[in-house]
Design a protein around this nucleic acid. Structure first.
Lengths: 166, 166
DNA sequence: TCAATCTTGTTTCAAATGAAACAGTTTCAA
DNA sequence: TTGAAACTGTTTCATTTGAAACAAGATTGA
């Protein structure tokens, strides 16, 4: 592990707007929590993305596209991860009788059991790690991020392009 | 690009605490902004991690370890990225005369020029993307994340271990 | 019907990432 | 001074990621 303690880790330039600071902190918090998650799963025969897929799969099966949409990644990323989960016996691919293009990702009993075991512990650890924020602050954070998320998604194919607009 | 618009992208279980929601949103916001950054740099001969290294390097040189600490990643990650930046002529490695273990990552004139050109535009884009939050909300978000960051860093080699404590 | 178009998942490639092992340096205490 | 321990950067390996091309299947409209 070993996470740097340096609280002054900003780019050296003087121009540090609140927006940049907030984004830098968001990156850092994300990075630390990701590291913790990876560490938690080390002894569990799972990587972080593998655990995420397990979380989005179900006994009855979920289309791979639906999982990749929820994970905000490309289908092509999941092929290999699912392969490894199959090798470990936690999921299986099953054809969708209604649409022969889709393959449903199904939890095996082993996968469902793994999840029943892991998920509550994982949630509890996350809860503890955020305990430095009061209940009210957690709500605040959630609402701010929710608002940011919506605006980013809605302006999606607009805002990020280099339009002359503004 | 194409970013899913599904606002109901939660794991299917009923137990959705505010902490989990906040963390999920943090992941999602991070993912979207990362995608935008990647898109912005597509035409600039740079990837996101390459641009980050450029931001942390300087004309006079910065030790690779210092850059990896700021980026919260392992030294071994940077070797390859720096190699590619050298191939593109944006940085060079120079031995530190005071410590023969360290190699200083130095911006070339081309790299410095690239940065002078890109950084202001990058900051402006980020600012616009967060414009849905009021000035006050940006401050709030920054303070919440700063608080979370500090507590995560301080409890670093403690909190994430599976101590019986609590 | 049938051809253009979209969708789904895979393959391939380049890049990034984390972990472990390693060699060369430096530090520090005995 | 010397030997153990720590530090710095690279190498190697397995995994993840994004992008583009692709094949097979579904959909749509003329």
């Amino acid at each position: 592990m070993s996470i740097s303690t340096d609280p002054t880790g900003w780019p050296q330039s003087g121009e540090m707007t609140p927006e940049i600071e907030a984004y830098t902190l968001l990156r850092q918090v994300h990075s630390i929590l990701e590291t913790y998650n990876r560490y938690d799963l080390r002894g569990e025969d799972l990587t972080v993305p593998q655990f995420m897929i397990l979380n989005y799969a179900s006994r009855s099966g979920v289309p791979l596209s639906e999982i990749s949409a929820r994970m905000m990644c490309d289908n092509s990323n999941l092929t290999g991860i699912v392969d490894r989960l199959i090798a470990k016996g936690y999921v299986e691919r099953r054809p969708d009788p209604n649409d022969r293009r889709v393959s449903l990702i199904c939890l095996t009993e082993a996968g469902a059991e793994k999840l029943r075991n892991l998920r509550p512990r994982h949630h509890e650890k996350l809860r503890k790690r955020m305990r430095s924020l009061s209940e009210h602050e957690v709500y605040q954070l959630r609402e701010l991020l929710k608002s940011l998320y919506s605006s980013l998604v809605n302006s999606s194919d607009d805002e990020h392009r280099d339009k002359a607009a503004d």
